[in-house]
Design a protein around this nucleic acid. Structure first.
Lengths: 128, 128
DNA sequence: AAATATATACGAAATATTTCGTAATAAAAA
DNA sequence: TTTTTATTACGAAATATTTCGTATATATTT
């Protein structure tokens, strides 16, 4: 059981983590380009954030070359679970069921995806 | 299709809204007591927040008596849906399926609740 | 070599959010 | 009536988060 203190990334930090989780270790420039596709952002803004994240140990940094290469230091799964727990608590008083119902109720989830969820239900019920 | 500008309550504002959604129109004192059960909070802190929320039109206020009575001005369902959409986007890139899988995968959801979700799936698939 | 382009470091401004102290006022109690 | 208590108004401090300008250093191009 790992217990690595709450990394709790902020909104902006999460955007950066997403890029790194999706594309692997990257330069500031690359990350900034990705983020700028959705929301124009200054280069030094992204740089500063990534530097802060490095200090907070949310990112690793390879500074062996002039152009530093950063990577996520926290796992995608664990981090999302933590964020989900927090959101669940704050918004649905901890009821996963309520959240799931609301999420599926409104969304245009495909039949294939619904089946995927159904399989998970089977699996979960099997273990109970 | 209503389009009432993003109310986007903050973390603290949401706590207040939850109290009002659960208990209906209330005084600052009552809301503060409820919130203080989880997290000791000064009376004027809660008051100030509720005043701000009133200006933002997140709350209505009945000031016909000395002790003002506040109530939520935004609906629980719509608000939670909005927050969910935002969270979904930021954390799961909009994939409700991924979120649902993660939410159910980790949680200790009861058999009864799983069945409830299964029924929702049936209903959804029926309509596709 | 000089000029140009690209990178990081650093500080600090700009914003957003939360918290609380103090004053003024009204009500209730003594 | 005087004192005590409860309530709102207001401002501002304390924090947290985001954004960016400027300096400096390193690499690349001319």
């Amino acid at each position: 059981m790992k217990h690595t203190q709450i990394p709790k990334p902020t909104e902006s930090e999460l955007e950066i983590l997403q890029v790194l989780w999706d594309h692997g270790a990257s330069t500031v420039r690359f990350v900034n380009e990705q983020i700028s596709e959705k929301k124009e952002t200054g280069y030094t803004t992204t740089l500063k954030l990534m530097q802060i994240m490095h200090v907070k140990e949310l990112l690793t940094r390879d500074d062996s070359t002039r152009t530093h290469v950063f990577d996520a230091a926290i796992s995608e799964g664990e981090t999302k679970q933590k964020l989900l727990d927090k959101f669940l608590d704050a918004t649905f008083r901890g009821s996963a069921t309520q959240l799931v119902m609301q999420a599926l109720g409104n969304s245009k989830t495909s039949k294939a995806e619904l089946n995927q969820i159904r399989e998970l239900l089977d699996q979960l019920e099997g273990g109970k």
